[in-house]
Nucleic acid binder design. Structure first.
Lengths: 199, 199, 199, 199
DNA sequence: GATGAATGAGAATTCATTCAT
DNA sequence: AATGAATGAATTCTCATTCAT
């Protein structure tokens, strides 16, 4: 049972988190704490009442993001596993792309402005990738055994796939400066990847 | 025949450039001009005596880097063209990797922090990539015609290759925190890529 | 009812304003924000917490000054109008001089360094002069009609009067280096002006 | 007999002086020594080989200006004295205006940016005015004795005249922002002044 | 005598962080 | 718990001045 005060506190904290997420997604991680406070409708000091430092805030925002992404990846894995027989690599790639497309803006900031982030945060996502890697690898291993996919170490296939996606995100300004990149190139990316991995 | 003063001036300029290059490579492009001056053993003002502004310094350092990289890429293309008949994709990938391996640290910063850099510098990057893409595509087109490489649009092959490399660079801390990544994974990357693109 | 913090904030702001006013009056408008902060007993950053920029500070200080001067000029006009029949040029000049005498130091800086000030501030000056010109011209027009004052365009009479005053202010160091000029020469200035304009 | 070296030296000095004068006239006294050197076609250090400090340069430039102005005023006085009988106040004012019109640009900088100048220089012109004042007063005294000009202390008449002129110069941006003020208002100024001083 | 590279003391401004309220 | 005024270190950049060449 939470006291009214605790509820209030958590609501404030959430307001800060939501605002920070939104501002970071749209303006990048160099946004000032003062701006976040203002947009969140709280005082500047309140930010530091909830987060010891800017680093803490970043860790929280980015950590939360990674967690929610991980959860989506997990669900994705589950659903493809539950429909195991019919689970296809194609369907998996679609699901993966969909998730990234849904969070492109923030994800893009994360990979393009990584150097602005505190060290603790910079590599958080590493853990995260393993969830998706796991399911991906299961699926691919089966296809390799079935003789459909080339006999390439599955982790390399995964890295190739992620490399392609990140390359497009990272060069968004080149590929698609004014609208989301992933949605635009999803088909081409998937098609190329499948062409490459199949015998 | 240079006067002593000209030599000294160029030496100072070079000290600044070298120091800036080193600091940018190790700490990233947000290093302050004051720090560069201090490490170079010159006064803060001297930096601005040689470069009108921080942007100018960045343009110079990054521009020089891009130019030297472009020159190396060009030579690489030439040598593979001169040995045209025997020119192999494999050799090309080796050459490409070698160049990047030689400049890994700075190249890593460049691709990691590109979005934080002034616009003028960002364009250089794009120009540069097209040089290598050109040679790469020529080679691959031939191999496709020869029926060795899969019929995938060559630009996608290029993007896949660069994606892989950048992915490993970008995740250096995960793949190889204490030593250069590319040297370590060059073989695996090349092998994977060739396995994928060949029929 | 103001909270303690509001009072303190305003007190700090006032400290900055007062100090800036004093320093500008004594040393001119090229005084640095650091100096103002130090003399005001606040940190340098505090100046920018209260004023977005140096320009804003100048606008505030000078604007306030102009406004208070304008108010005094306005009152002066009113009182001479209310006593319309008996309103004399002589009284008007006395009132005008009195106001300037009260603010001689800052007014001197304003007319001496106007060209160095940001544009926004420069316009204030012009507006201000027109207020006093208006009342002055009304009075003089009547006297001209009455045949007391020479038939010279009233704007030229105004310019002559202001020219005389500004000339003495501008040459304070020559006329009266150690004490206010206007107080010292008010009588002579007024007497000369009246002698000149009367037939 | 000057050695070649001395001649060279003086020529360099003169180049600096001429350039400084021109730049100060057109851009104001905040022009940097580096710019003056560059425009003069000499090295930055050369400026300081000829003038111990920026202040020295300013003193020289402004001093020279004052001297040449004084010389012109002196000649003006002589010519009006030589033609004594026919010398008129009107002619004198014309001559005075003409000299100022010829040097309006620099003179304007001198009176509008005085606060940027070192103290030693700020009041130089005081001495200068006495030359013209002398002739002016002689002429006016005679006219007063002749009953043409009002019996007002001649120094006040002089100050009034100078006040008018300075007022127009000082407010050039208001009276005539894009072309010289004095030439434009010379007639009006003179006419007003004469109207005022005559009985 | 002339050079011009190097200097270093400022200049305005930003911003995460603190703490009395 | 929330406030927000105050802090001060850090940033880029300017410029008169010096001195080895």
């Amino acid at each position: 049972m939470k006291s009214k005060r605790q509820i209030q506190k958590e609501s404030t904290r959430q307001k800060i988190i939501d605002t920070a997420y939104r501002i970071y997604a749209t303006e990048g991680f160099s946004a000032s704490t003062a701006k976040i406070a203002k947009e969140a409708g709280v005082s500047h000091g309140t930010v530091f009442a909830h987060f010891q430092s800017l680093n803490d805030l970043l860790e929280c925002i980015i950590g939360d993001f990674q967690l929610s992404l991980a959860a989506e990846f997990h669900d994705m894995g589950e659903s493809s596993a539950s429909a195991s027989a019919s689970a296809s690599v194609s369907g998996f790639l679609d699901a993966h792309l969909k998730i990234l497309i849904d969070h492109e803006e923030f994800y893009l900031r994360l990979i393009t402005e990584r150097s602005l982030l505190p060290e603790e945060v910079q590599y958080m996502y590493a853990d995260n990738q393993s969830t998706i890697a796991h399911h991906f690898n299961l699926l691919l291993s089966r296809e390799i055994k079935n003789g459909i996919v080339k006999e390439v170490p599955v982790h390399m296939l995964f890295n190739t796939w992620l490399g392609m996606i990140h390359y497009y995100l990272w060069n968004k300004d080149f590929f698609s400066p004014d609208e989301p990149v992933l949605a635009r190139y999803a088909g081409e990316l998937k098609h190329t990847f499948i062409s490459l991995i199949t015998k």
